[in-house]
Lab assay of single mutants.
Amino acid sequence: QAPETKIVDKSRVACDGGEGALGHPRVWLQIPEDTGWVECPYCDCKYVLKGSKADAL
């Protein structure tokens, strides 16, 4: 199944896999201003900063 994409309001987000005990260790991710998105290294969930150029795609 394809990784999930989430639109977020802040450039710093936490990801834990979203499945409680079945998820992964919580990691904090920083969305770079130049790209407007970041992917979780564990679950490949893509976080897109709302209003960024990546959000316009």
Score class of each variant (00 low, 15 high):
Cys43Gln: 00
Arg26Tyr: 07
Asp34Asn: 08
Ser52Met: 02
Trp37Leu: 04
Pro41Leu: 04
Asp9Asn: 11
Cys40Glu: 05
Leu49Pro: 14
Cys15Gln: 00
Ala14Trp: 13
Pro32Ile: 06
Asp44Phe: 15
His24Gly: 04
Gly20Trp: 06
Pro25Trp: 08
Ala14Arg: 05
Ala56Tyr: 13
Val27Gly: 01
Leu22Arg: 14
Thr35Trp: 06
Glu33His: 08
Lys10His: 12
Gln1Thr: 13
Asp34Leu: 10
Pro25Gln: 09
Lys6Ser: 08
Tyr47Thr: 03
Lys50Ala: 11
Val27Ser: 02
Asp9Cys: 13
Leu57Val: 11
Val13Asn: 03
Cys40Val: 09
Leu49Lys: 12
Gly51Arg: 01
Gly36His: 02
Glu33Cys: 11
Arg26His: 02
Glu39His: 12
Tyr47Met: 03
Trp28Ser: 00
Ala21Gly: 09
Gly18Glu: 06
Asp55Gly: 03
Val48Tyr: 07
Pro41Tyr: 05
Ser11Pro: 12
Tyr47Cys: 14
Asp44Glu: 12
Cys15Glu: 00
Ser52Arg: 00
Asp55Arg: 00
Trp28Lys: 00
Thr5Ala: 12
Val48Gln: 05
Tyr47His: 07
Leu29Val: 02
Pro3Asp: 08
Gly17Trp: 04
His24Tyr: 05
Val8Phe: 03
Leu49Ser: 10
Ala21Glu: 11
Val48Asp: 01
Gly36Lys: 03
Asp44Leu: 15
Cys43His: 02
Ala14Pro: 11
Trp37Ser: 05
Lys6Glu: 06
Leu57Phe: 13
Asp55Pro: 04
Leu57Tyr: 09
Gly51Pro: 03
Cys45Met: 15
Trp37Phe: 13
Asp55Ser: 01
Leu29Ile: 05
Trp28Cys: 05
Ala54Leu: 06
Cys45Tyr: 15
Val27Met: 04
Ala56Pro: 14
Gln1Tyr: 12
Lys53Ala: 10
Val27Ile: 12
Val48Arg: 02
Pro41Thr: 04
Ser11Leu: 13
Gly51Asn: 05
Leu57Trp: 10
Ile7Arg: 08
Trp37Asp: 01
Thr35Val: 12
Ser11Trp: 09
Pro3Asn: 11
Gly17Ala: 04
Ile31Gly: 03
Ser52Cys: 13
Asp9Trp: 04
Val48Cys: 12
Leu22Val: 06
Ala56Lys: 13
Leu49Asp: 14
Val27Phe: 05
Gly17Phe: 04
Asp44Trp: 15
Asp44Lys: 15
Ser11Thr: 12
Arg12Gln: 11
Lys50Thr: 06
Pro32Thr: 04
Trp28Gly: 00
Glu33Ala: 10
Asp16Thr: 13
Lys10Val: 13
Gly17Val: 04
Gly18Met: 14
Lys10Thr: 14
Asp34Arg: 08
His24Asn: 03
Lys46Gln: 03
Ala14Lys: 08
Glu39Thr: 12
His24Leu: 03
Glu33Trp: 10
Ser52Gly: 13
Ser52Val: 08
Gly18Cys: 15
Val27Arg: 02
Pro41Lys: 04
Pro41His: 06
Thr5Cys: 15
Cys40Met: 09
Gly20Val: 05
Cys43Tyr: 02
Pro32Met: 04
Asp16Leu: 08
Glu39Asn: 12
Leu29Trp: 05
Ala14His: 08
Tyr42Gly: 03
Val38Ala: 04
Gly23Trp: 14
Ile31Pro: 04
Ile7Glu: 05
Trp28Val: 01
Leu29Gln: 01
Pro25Leu: 08
Gly36Phe: 04
Gly20Asp: 06
Leu22Ser: 11
Val27Thr: 05
Pro25His: 06
Ile7Ser: 03
Pro41Gly: 02
Lys50Arg: 14
Pro32Glu: 06
Ile31Asp: 02
Leu29Asn: 01
Glu4Trp: 15
Asp34Trp: 08
Gln1Val: 13
Asp16Cys: 14
Lys50Phe: 03
Ile31Lys: 01
Pro41Arg: 05
Val38Cys: 00
Thr5Met: 12
Lys10Glu: 11
Lys50Tyr: 02
Ala2Leu: 14
Ser11Ile: 10
Cys15Leu: 00
Asp34Ser: 09
Asp9Ser: 12
Lys6Asp: 03
Tyr42Pro: 05
Gly23Arg: 14
Glu19Thr: 09
Gln30Asp: 13
Gln1Glu: 09
Pro3Lys: 14
Lys46Gly: 03
Gly36Ser: 04
Val13Pro: 02
Lys53Trp: 09
Tyr42Met: 14
Arg26Pro: 02
Cys40Asn: 07
Ala14Met: 09
Lys50Met: 09
Asp34Gly: 07
Trp28Met: 03
Gly18His: 13
Gly20Pro: 03
Gly23Asn: 09
Glu33Ser: 06
Gly51Tyr: 07
Pro25Ser: 08
Lys53Ile: 12
Pro32Arg: 06
Ala2Trp: 13
Ile7Ala: 05
Val48Leu: 06
Arg12Asp: 10
Gln30Asn: 10
Cys40Phe: 12
Gln1Asp: 09
Val27His: 01
Leu29Lys: 02
Glu4Gly: 15
Trp37Asn: 02
Gln30Glu: 11
Val13Gln: 02
Ala54Lys: 03
Thr5Lys: 06
Ala21Arg: 10
Val27Lys: 03
Arg26Trp: 08
Pro3Trp: 12
Val48Phe: 06
Leu22Glu: 09
Val38Tyr: 03
Leu57Gly: 12
Ser11Met: 11
Lys53Gln: 11
Lys50Val: 10
Gly23Gln: 13
Gly23Met: 11
Trp28Asp: 00
Pro25Asp: 05
Arg26Ile: 07
Ala2Glu: 11
Tyr47Ser: 02
Thr5Phe: 15
Glu19Met: 08
Val38Glu: 02
Glu33Gln: 11
Ile31His: 03
Glu39Val: 14
Val8Gly: 01
Ile31Ser: 01
Gly51Leu: 02
Ala54Val: 04
Lys10Phe: 13
Gly23Val: 09
Ala21Trp: 08
Glu33Thr: 10
His24Cys: 01
Leu22Trp: 10
Gln30His: 10
Lys6Ala: 05
Val38Arg: 01
Cys43Glu: 00
Cys40Lys: 08
Lys6Leu: 11
Lys10Leu: 08
Arg26Thr: 05
Gln30Cys: 13
Gly17Met: 04
Cys15His: 00
Pro3Ser: 13
Arg26Gly: 00
Cys15Thr: 00
Val38Lys: 02
Pro3His: 15
Trp37Thr: 03
Ala2Gly: 12
